[in-house]
Amino acid sequence: MGMLIIIDQPPYGTWAGREALDMAFALAAFDQPTSLLFTGAGVNWLRKAQDTADIEQKSLEKNLAAAPIFGIEAILADRTACQRYNLNSEAMIDGVQLTNASADLLGQYSQTAFAG
């Protein structure tokens, strides 16, 4: 079953998403099966080549790349939201599975929590 953390907030400009990522890492640390789902403006986390030097923040792209190392099971992205933000597979970081954010998907997890 496992836990699904849904990030529907854009990267940067708000801390909600980063806090959700911390929570996912903490769950993985205790070997709770945990997956991340990016929907809405959240899919913009998954765009390649984020260069944050000028906004003086850590790169969420690089932070997120640590997810498999820490034991996050899957990184999922809602297909419709990716289309809405013009995010095709070429522009997307590796290791993301496209899916449809639906009641069926949520039904596969014993617990679901949204960022923020």
């Binding site: 890492f25 903490a26 640390a29 205790f30 690089k62 190392i69 820490f70």
Partner: peptide, 21 residues
Amino acid sequence: FYKEHEISPPSNRLFVKAVKD
């Protein structure tokens, strides 16, 4: 690890996991 991910392993358990990986 820090160059690659711009974070420290957030906890002991995740430090161990990262080294194991």
